[in-house]
Design a protein around this nucleic acid. Structure first.
Lengths: 120, 120
DNA sequence: CCCATTAGTATCATTTTGGGTGCTACCCTA
DNA sequence: TAGGGTAGCACCCAAAATGATACTAATGGG
């Protein structure tokens, strides 16, 4: 390994935020990627069924949406409720844990809009 | 195209956050990925030179770090200051625009830590 | 002289992510 | 009876992100 990590004596005490439990990294693993953040943000506003979500996420394929929702469900941010109806009906909503992301998502949304506006 | 987008009459007025300018998506494009968020978070605390940053980002390769920093610089979140010294010295710091991310990064960090703790 | 340090670049290879297509079952409507 | 709407799954492929490795130049220390 060329990338050996050596000690830096001027630097040892500055390690306030070690990478091995950097919260930022954890969060971005969960809500990162092309769709998850946006999915959660939509579900913040209201419970949606699969097809509603798909329409809101312009450009997402069925496969991707299913996949992302499965992962969010696995991470317990999203509830999946299946109704035994025909045609099928499945509703997605935020769990309590999912709701704890709301302020963060709001900030991401606001910041992103500002950024987008500035860069015109 | 099988994925045709049809109108949903029950749904038209619910489009509060159209995807084509969803701030969340914009933000995640900028700070998403494996390293950018963490890089910014470290630079929030203090200006760092390349090698210091590299030590803090356990596991990053030189190439990735350079690449991510170039993109952050291009997006005007990070300043790059080169000192004409030998051995070379390059310091990275947040721009004013970069600083506007601090509250968001703080929330991401806190949430990520909580999430990490809960899942043990 | 030899080696380490610094901040890179160039060239691969690999892994992760995202996407296209086709299939299903059931019911309703035209 | 044909077609549309629903929420998927399976399979294969393309593209993007990430990573490993080797190389550079200038200088100071031993």
């Amino acid at each position: 390994m060329t990338e050996a990590v050596k000690k830096d004596s001027n630097d040892v005490l500055e390690q306030q935020t070690p990478n091995y439990i950097c919260g930022v990294a954890v969060s971005l693993e969960i809500i990162g990627g092309k769709w998850k953040g946006v999915i959660l943000w939509h579900l913040c506003h209201k419970t949606l069924r699969f097809s509603q979500l798909r329409r809101r996420l312009q450009g997402v394929t069925q496969k991707m949406l299913t996949q992302q929702l499965r992962e969010l469900e696995r991470d317990q941010l999203v509830n999946r409720k299946v109704y035994a109806e025909v045609p099928p009906r499945v509703e997605y909503s935020l769990t309590d844990l999912g709701r704890t992301l709301e302020p963060t998502l709001r900030q991401l949304c606001d910041w992103g809009k500002d950024f987008h506006d500035q860069h015109r």
